[in-house]
Design a protein around this nucleic acid. Structure first.
Lengths: 157, 157
DNA sequence: ATTGAAAGAGTCTCAGT
DNA sequence: ACTGAGACTCTTTCAAT
């Protein structure tokens, strides 16, 4: 794992650009990095074959689509060995978009996206309540998302 | 805000597909949804003009790039009115990729991505320690990310 | 609003360096 | 390993419905 084999500065620069805008053409990206479009193509193909890049995803303004509520849920389990079975059940709830098994207070840290508070309430009370193994939960509703960016993989010079 | 004007089922289906794979061609997407490539194009253009879709982003396997540590930080502020100034300072730390102003225990909920535990320690002790207005922090290190997906914007039938 | 076809732009391959 | 040019595919426009 992690084996950073053969990833040079050009690869990282390509990744850095495409993480912000994957729609830029190989020609334009090549101009910025002083290489030919063919070279950009070869590098991206290598990164795809490596599994380092996994395709591209549309970036959507969820508020404009009516999804106004982002919430984080800290989940306490009755026993931490229940992690796998609880995670499997929670995965079935479509509003849950992310789950991490974490150190610290909570066993599972989840993020969910809902249209409104009523839907959030329904997920918490109707759906999560039914999952066996959850002791209790703590909910943090996001009032404002002040930052959401990609990691910086290149070094400044 | 949110004004869902003129977003129909086809728009949502297009968004749903492109959130998973933004590289599919308009032709192939049109085939799946039983419309022409031209129609797909017109709809996507409308969604871009609306600001509902904001371009595409490369999806990267951070572990393979050597970023092994994802951590969540709950931040207590001395006064919650300090939110803006603290957020502005934290934004300068490149390892911090996300910040939300939340209800509940913490004032700010941040996510950060590091190469290793040593780097995490350095961010927590050297960089965040210097920011005025932070009372204390709680760190949750992700041992496993068991889910990371897009919201579901279409209804099953 | 959707279509089909034509024009324009981008991706991908490959022989040469 | 990079390049440039050609072949191919996709995006984009537009007149017609």
């Amino acid at each position: 794992m992690a084996a950073n084999l053969n990833i040079d500065k050009l690869d990282l620069q390509i990744i850095q650009h495409l993480m912000q805008d994957a729609n830029i053409s190989y020609a334009d990206l090549g101009k910025k990095l002083f290489v030919s479009p063919g070279t950009v193509h070869v590098r991206i193909k290598k990164l795809q074959d490596n599994g380092i890049v996994n395709g591209t995803r549309l970036h959507v303004d969820l508020k404009k689509l009516g999804y106004d509520v982002i919430a984080f849920i800290g989940i306490y389990l009755e026993k931490s060995s229940l992690y796998d079975t609880v995670a499997k059940e929670l995965r079935k709830i479509p509003e849950i978009v992310r789950m991490n098994y974490t150190t610290g207070n909570y066993s599972i840290f989840a993020e969910l996206v809902c249209k409104d508070i009523a839907q959030l309430r329904s997920v918490l009370h109707d759906q999560m309540q039914k999952v066996k193994g959850i002791e209790r939960t703590e909910t943090f509703i996001s009032l404002e998302e002040s930052l959401n960016r990609s990691v910086q993989v290149t070094v400044e010079e």
